[in-house]
């Protein structure tokens, strides 16, 4: 794991990391990935990825359920007008 990888991930996560933190995370990430490599080494040819979850497959029928009162919806919000959330102005630039 390069320091630049950590910088890129931190930037995508909107995290501002100090140089010391970058170094520490790079080491920690490397340790975590090491654990996953160990898991990857296990032979899972016969195990379905869904094997552990299949029994819990649950869908809901298309039925309407109660919604939250507007006061509750906006309760924890730092900025709102009477009915809507307010955010700093940005223009839509997403790819999809």
């Amino acid at each position: 794991m390069q320091r630049t990888d950590i910088e890129a991930i931190a930037s995508l996560a909107r995290l501002d990391l100090t140089p010391e933190q970058l170094d520490r995370f790079a080491t920690q990430f490397e340790d975590i990935l090491g654990l996953f490599r160990a898991l990857d080494a296990v032979d899972t040819t016969d195990a379905s990825r869904a094997a552990t979850t299949e029994r819990h497959r649950s869908l809901r029928e298309d039925r309407v359920a109660p919604t939250l009162p507007l006061g509750d919806v906006l309760a924890n919000n730092p900025a709102s007008d009477a009915t809507r959330f307010l955010v700093p102005k940005i223009l839509d630039d997403r790819a999809s």
């Binding site: 009915t83 809507r84 959330f85 307010l86 955010v87 700093p88 102005k89 940005i90 223009l91």
Partner: peptide, 11 residues
Amino acid sequence: HDADPRQSVVD
């Protein structure tokens, strides 16, 4: 975006 010059509103 057009409700306010500095802020956008979210629904």
